[in-house]
Simulated scan of single mutants.
Amino acid sequence: MAMNKILVAGIFVSACLLLLQCEEARAAEFVVGDDQGWGPQTNVSRWLEGKRFKAGDVLIFRYTCSLCSFVTVISDYYYRSCDAFSGLKKSYNSGNDHVVLDYGDNFFVPSYHVYCEQGLMKFKVFAN
């Protein structure tokens, strides 16, 4: 009987530890621009300061501006050249877009080419 209680207690403790580890593995969510939201007024460089990202984290883009849609591109080349469509990975335009970060560099380019050329709404993040 005592052996059964020890076995049950061991299983309970193991399950609790497993649940705690699952909690730590949960992806973090980041609202791009925080309360200011996503748009040409957002200082993305300042918003990125001090943030560390992991693969699986989610960036949330909230906006109402019709020119604030954006795309993810497949490489630094398309990012630097503001070529939002030749290197297109995925396009976003809902105003409440959720992007799950891949491991490595993730490149974000505004769909509106003029913003990109002005350095607005263009950024990249590295996710470990």
Rank of each mutant, 00 (worst) to 15 (best):
K124G: 06
A27H: 10
V31C: 04
A15S: 13
F108N: 06
N43F: 01
G95A: 06
R26A: 00
S86K: 14
A55C: 04
Y63V: 12
A2N: 14
V8R: 02
Y79N: 08
F53I: 11
C16M: 14
A15G: 12
R46V: 10
K5Y: 04
V109T: 05
S86A: 08
G37L: 08
D34E: 13
L67N: 06
S75H: 02
V31F: 10
V114W: 10
S66P: 15
E23Q: 13
F107N: 01
H113R: 15
F85V: 09
A9H: 11
L18S: 11
S69F: 02
F85I: 02
Q118V: 06
L120N: 10
S69W: 02
V58Q: 08
L17G: 14
K5D: 06
S69D: 15
S69E: 12
V100K: 15
D76Y: 11
I74C: 04
F85W: 14
A2L: 12
M3P: 01
D57L: 02
F107A: 01
M121L: 06
V13W: 07
R26T: 00
W38A: 03
R80Y: 01
G37V: 09
A9M: 13
T64N: 13
N128F: 01
L17E: 09
D57Q: 06
R26P: 00
T72G: 05
N93E: 09
N43P: 10
A84F: 13
R46P: 02
W47A: 09
D102T: 12
K5N: 03
Y78R: 09
C116M: 04
F70K: 09
F12Y: 14
V73E: 00
C65E: 08
V125F: 01
W47M: 10
S75D: 11
N106K: 06
D83L: 08
E49N: 13
C82H: 06
C116P: 05
A9G: 11
V44M: 03
G50M: 12
F85P: 02
E29R: 06
G119V: 03
L120F: 07
G104P: 05
L19K: 10
C82K: 03
C16V: 15
V71C: 05
M1T: 02
I6G: 01
N106L: 08
K124D: 02
M121G: 03
T42Q: 08
